[in-house]
Deep mutational scan, measured.
Amino acid sequence: MDVFMKGLSKAKEGVVAAAEKTKQGVAEAAGKTKEGVLYVGSKTKEGVVHGVATVAEKTKEQVTNVGGAVVTGVTAVAQKTVEGAGSIAAATGFVKKDQLGKNEEGAPQEGILEDMPVDPDNEAYEMPSEEGYQDYEPEA
């Protein structure tokens, strides 16, 4: 019985440690998101679009440190934060509304985080759909 109880105690310690790591990862992701939003706020009209992409990228980098179902929630929060940063930029006159959601080359930025393969159960990952990809044929 002692062996059984000791095993359960060790398992509990492992769960607590994993929860603490997840909590730490979420806190880091939130900190990076805040950094990115402050970065966007300090940019001029020309830099705002690039700044919004930076927020998304920093958040995406930190999301990889967070495991399990938390990833889905962090990704949703990050996307809403990026959308909010863009709205703030438009409201303050840093950028025109028609410039939001495009990178410096004018290509749409939507789907940055949505296409990231995420499995809350950590069982399997699927690649994003290939609808947006084109076949590449090298020139002879």
Rank of each mutant, 00 (worst) to 15 (best):
V26K: 00
A140H: 13
D121Y: 11
V15F: 03
K43Y: 12
A17E: 03
E46W: 05
E104R: 14
D135M: 05
K10A: 05
K43F: 14
Q79C: 09
S87P: 02
A30V: 11
E28C: 09
P108C: 09
K32I: 09
K58R: 10
N103I: 04
T54Q: 07
Q62I: 08
E35R: 09
K6M: 14
K96L: 10
Y125F: 12
P128M: 03
K12P: 00
A53E: 06
G84T: 08
E46C: 06
L38Y: 09
A19S: 03
E126N: 08
G36H: 04
G36S: 06
F4C: 02
E57I: 09
A78P: 01
P138K: 02
V3T: 15
T75E: 01
A107E: 12
K58G: 14
E114N: 08
E131A: 03
D135P: 08
A29Y: 11
S9F: 06
Y133C: 05
E139V: 09
Q79M: 03
G14I: 06
G132W: 08
Q79G: 04
V40T: 02
N122I: 10
D98V: 02
E61C: 08
T64K: 10
Q134S: 06
M1F: 15
E123S: 03
K21Q: 06
G84P: 01
L113R: 02
A56Q: 03
A90P: 09
V95I: 12
E123R: 04
A11S: 00
E83K: 05
S9Q: 09
A30P: 01
E130G: 11
N122S: 11
A30I: 08
V3K: 09
G68P: 14
T33P: 00
A17K: 11
G36D: 04
P128H: 08
F94M: 14
K32R: 05
M1D: 15
M127H: 07
D115W: 07
G67V: 12
K10W: 15
D115V: 05
E126K: 13
G47F: 14
H50P: 02
E131H: 07
S129V: 05
A85N: 06
E110F: 11
P128F: 04
V82I: 07
E105R: 13
V82F: 03
K21M: 14
T75C: 09
M127W: 04
S42A: 13
I88T: 02
K34L: 14
Q109A: 02
T59E: 00
L38M: 07
A78R: 03
Q109C: 04
D119R: 15
N103F: 10
V55E: 00
T44S: 01
A29M: 07
V66D: 01
G68D: 13
Y39F: 12
E20I: 03
V71H: 04
L8V: 04
G47Y: 14
T72K: 15
T81G: 03
K6D: 09
Q99V: 12
T33G: 02
K6Q: 15
A124T: 13
Q109S: 10
A124C: 06
G68K: 08
T59R: 01
D98Y: 12
A107M: 06
V71M: 04
L8G: 00
G41R: 10
T81C: 10
Y133K: 12
K102S: 15
G93L: 09
D121T: 13
M116V: 00
E61A: 06
K58D: 01
I88M: 09
D2P: 01
E83M: 02
A124L: 03
A89E: 02
E139T: 10
Q24S: 07
V71C: 03
K80T: 08
N122D: 12
P117G: 11
G86P: 03
M5N: 01
K45E: 00
M5Y: 15
P120C: 06
H50R: 04
Y39C: 02
G132A: 14
F94V: 06
G132D: 10
F4L: 10
S42C: 06
E126F: 14
E131K: 04
V70R: 01
V70L: 06
E110N: 10
P138A: 05
A140I: 05
E35W: 09
K6H: 12
A89F: 11
G73E: 07
F4E: 00
K6F: 15
A30T: 08
